Amino acid sequence: MPTARSRDVLRMRGGVLAETADMVVDEVPVALVYNGLSHAVMMATPADLEDFALGFSLSEGIIDSAAACYGIEVEQGGQGIAVQLEIASSAFVGLKERRRVLAGRTGCGLCGVDSLEQVRRPERVLAPAIGFHAAGVRAALGAIGAEQQLTRLTGAAHAAAWCGMDGSLRIVREDVGRHNALDKVIGAMARAKCSPEDGFFLITSRVSFEMAQKAVMAGVPALVGMSAPTLAAVELAEKAGMTLLAFARGRDFVCYTHPQHLGLDVTASEA
């Protein structure tokens, strides 16, 4: 299924009007269905949906490991796409209980969350990032643009990447939603049986609480965002032992948490 489509548009540039074609990113309703029970419908870019479904299931705590997902099938329908997941019975019981407590409510701000206590999932403390270095951050920042094909085509997608500590881009995914892009990376890592502690996440978006929480749930010890963080994200990273960098562009970044786990090859005044 195409992830972008051409549209005829009227463009004003430099005071001159012209009829031309423009590429527009696609987003479709994607239903995540667990053991026949529809749990969530997300607007997403229709690519890498197996990665998305598995990553969402892991980062949202629906399953605790990839082994608890027995199969994934993507079904194209007239109104959207249904991703059918078969999960372990114990995980499905927990999912049904989550849905039961939500019954009758008009809506919630966070998917599957019924109370303030459920916003923060069980606290996880990560091992320190080993080999995380400013040089690797710069290398990843320099390489990510070439991998953002959908962004270059439409200007409307976010990217997320799992990078080796040397800055090599090992897994890159794009989506119209920043959460979706990160979930796709998490799912691809799980399917490839990657060791999350061997690298760091790079995201082209701001670092919200949910993005930081997904990174912690994935077991990745460092997160680099190209835009601003929120205070909730910083506090979560601090408690979890995750090194958090934001405003990362070119050679520049701001380290918000656990700077002792970040190797530097410049003086503090230059960092």
Rank of each mutant, 00 (worst) to 15 (best):
L153T: 13
E27Q: 14
R13W: 02
A157R: 01
G136H: 04
V119E: 12
L85R: 04
L116P: 08
I87Q: 12
I171H: 07
K193P: 00
I203H: 02
L54Q: 04
V224P: 03
M42T: 06
G219Q: 08
E174G: 08
A160F: 02
L58Q: 03
P221L: 04
A135N: 06
V28G: 00
A88R: 10
G177H: 01
G80E: 07
G71C: 05
G109T: 15
L102C: 12
S115N: 12
G55C: 11
H179P: 00
G61F: 01
L110W: 05
V137M: 08
T204A: 03
I81N: 07
V25Y: 00
V137I: 11
R124A: 13
R138N: 07
E197S: 14
A129F: 06
H158A: 10
H179Q: 12
A192H: 06
F253I: 03
F52K: 02
A233Y: 02
R124F: 05
G61K: 01
G155M: 11
G14F: 06
V254P: 00
A18S: 13
G263L: 09
V119R: 12
R170Y: 01
A53T: 02
A161S: 15
F92K: 13
A188N: 07
G107W: 06
R178Y: 08
A129L: 10
S38H: 01
A134C: 09
L202S: 10
K239Q: 15
E270D: 13
L153Y: 01
V172T: 07
L85H: 05
A21R: 15
S59C: 10
A246F: 08
L244G: 02
A181H: 03
A47N: 10
V266C: 14
H179T: 11
V93E: 15
V25S: 07
R7K: 14
L95Y: 03
A91K: 00
A91G: 06
A271H: 11
V33T: 11
A246W: 02
S90W: 01
E117Y: 10
A67V: 05
S227P: 00
A135K: 07
L182F: 10
M23C: 00
A143V: 02
D166W: 14
L95R: 10
S65A: 09
E197V: 08
N35G: 04
H258S: 08
G71R: 10
D252A: 14
S115W: 07
G225C: 09
M12R: 14
E238C: 05
C108F: 10
F253N: 05
M165S: 00
E210I: 06
I186R: 02
G15E: 11
A268G: 07
A192L: 12
E197N: 05
K193E: 11
M12I: 12
T243G: 11
S227L: 13
P122T: 10
M189P: 01
G164Q: 13
E75V: 14
A192Q: 13
E75H: 11
T230H: 12
V234H: 01
D252S: 14
D252K: 14
G145A: 12
L116F: 13
Q149V: 14
L262G: 01
